[in-house]
Design a protein around this nucleic acid. Sequence first.
RNA 1: CGGGGCGUAGCGUAGCCCGGUUAUCGCGCCACAUUUGGGAUGUGGAGGUCGCAAGUUCGAAUCUUGCCGCCCCGACCA
Length: 491
Amino acid sequence: MSKEITSRQQDYSQWYNDLILKGGLADYSAVRGCMVIKPYGYALWENMRDQLDKMFKETGHQNAYFPLFIPKSFLSKEAAHVQGFAKECAVVTHYRLMNDPNGGGIIVDPDAKLEEELIIRPTSETIIWNTYKTWIQSYRDLPLLINQWANVVRWEMRTRLFLRTAEFLWQEGHTAHATAQEAIDETLLMLNIYAEFAEEWMAMPVIKGVKSINERFAGAEDTYCIEALMQDGKALQAGTSHFLGQNFAKAFDVKFSDKQNKLDYVWATSWGVSTRLIGALVMAHSDDEGLVLPPKLAPIQVVIIPIYKGDEQKNLIDEKVKVLMITFKALGIKVKYDDNDNNRPGWKFAEYEMKGVPIRIAIGARDIEKNVVEVARRDTKEKMTVSIDGLAEAMHVLLNDIQTNIYSRAKKYRDENISKADTWDEFKKVLDGPGGFISAHWDGTAETEDKIKELSKATIRCIPLSNTQEEGKCILTGNPSRERVLFARAY
RNA sequence: CGGGGCGUAGCGUAGCCCGGUUAUCGCGCCACAUUUGGGAUGUGGAGGUCGCAAGUUCGAAUCUUGCCGCCCCGACCA
């Protein structure tokens, strides 16, 4: 009983932290707001990254890499952009250290002050558009479809493991197009890729929508997003895709000649998802026993645990498992045989439950006699006896089944937690009760949105893309409204 | 930045109010043995700038002052 997890009901935040720390995904570090991603957590990120990368490449994007440092003057070229990020920038002012002449150890050399300060990128639009200026002259250079996998820094006041860290890993796509329509199509294409990834790989249902002006990315014309619902009834933005119009092209003077030799500014998009997705994944499926990972992303899909008395039995099991492992791997199943004898089976059972491994197989001498194994699935905690013949195929099917099951479970929860509210009282009642998404009328003004946020801490998560038009009255002001939007308290 | 909590071995803790042997206990770690179908047991062992600094005192984990760090809640945000 060395690793107790706080229950969700007792303290949801603590539960979340326990899962991350005790599940071996990450650790706190010596640096405020920055975490260490441990091998198991990083393996999960690699799986997510690899799949997304594949999807980006399938849609014609290429990877590139731009500098970590952004000259201060670049950031201020797009007015809205700098306003959005100025308050959370880490700034490099010097380039050298020296021994303190007063014996105080190492100090910053005052003579080594940079002429122009460098900002550690909070996002890379500016450095990238400064570069695109030199890459784009003609419509023949378009579209330019680039993605970058990188780390970025945002000096957040309050941080949380994976959900909001001062430094985080992400990908940022930055594309340039000849027409507005093409850029809008790209924005939506990437939004759909994010949604597909969230639903099919993370098994996490999301709502696609567009942000209100208040919630829009700094420098964008339109911000699209996917919004997911966590088990505590709070929403989480899982990915964003921005139509940037010609804002950055104008700020960085990026023009191209069209077929008629007419000069025009190019149209831009940017889109990103981050290690925050790991936080989303954790909160979407896990329970009080630990993580529950979707098979498609789990670093370990099947763990095999031997149960034996003495070397003779152990050897027998080893032989059997060796053959099984080959059949598992042939089907592309990520399997681990844990025959470490430091820990007994019971300990391992608990440990792999904590780590969210989708399937656990226990195999002992008496199983081999009967040509069976014990299979336990993490999502339902169900145990069953399965024949060794065709085991890999059966597990392959079961992994798919688990993937589908946790998706349906999450979707059922999500759907049950979308409520309609037509009055302020109803609205507050849901928020202070179960939470979740609230579909409500809003008069469309930023002032009202701010007021609602101030009064209820709920924000407009998005205006769903497939929204039905419907006459109604704003829940706060009673002013006329043409459609409902989704509110929630959010991470 | 405001509110709350915390800092003692890798982790979790007792001791602090009321200063006084060698700083408590559990987990983990190392060795050996017995074990292995839901977090094993025994025996032996290693491991400590009590967050940092100054002060009070014969004597400080304990009292005083200052500082630092972390976590949780809120404002900011992906």
